[in-house]
Amino acid sequence: MDRVPILKAGDVLLVSIQTDLEDRTVMALREDLAERIVRTGARGVVIDITAVEIVDSFIGQMLAGIAAMSQLLDARTVVVGMRPAVAITLVELGLSLGGVQTALDLETGLRLLGAGPLDGGPSEAQDRR
């Protein structure tokens, strides 16, 4: 079974999902994250789903479960990079993921968690606005 790697940057855990998610993989990720949050004292979790082509009700429920679990362990979860087609489909499916905080991209997600751009300077994205 594939396992999703968990990276640590400061007090944020970073997960980038790159495969078509099998149920067991998502369940393992939830357990791995719980263990890592406790072990590292991380205050935030960013889950990048840029590469994820579909989120069905099971995977959506798992993302919501990870967010709820991390909150109990004093860490905030932000899901970043959802594709527009995935968002449209989730709403039509009837899953609004109300309890899950989202951000359009990794940089915005990190800023939401107070981690900011890693170089510390003003971000290009802000300059362009």
């Binding site: 082509e53 579909i54 989120v55 099971f58 087609a85 995935v86 489909t89």
Partner: peptide, 15 residues
């Protein structure tokens, strides 16, 4: 978008 909807429906029904 339609492809994503169809694949998601398939995933739900297979489950």
């Amino acid at each position: 978008v339609d492809r994503t909807k169809l694949v998601t429906a398939a995933s739900e029904l297979a489950r």
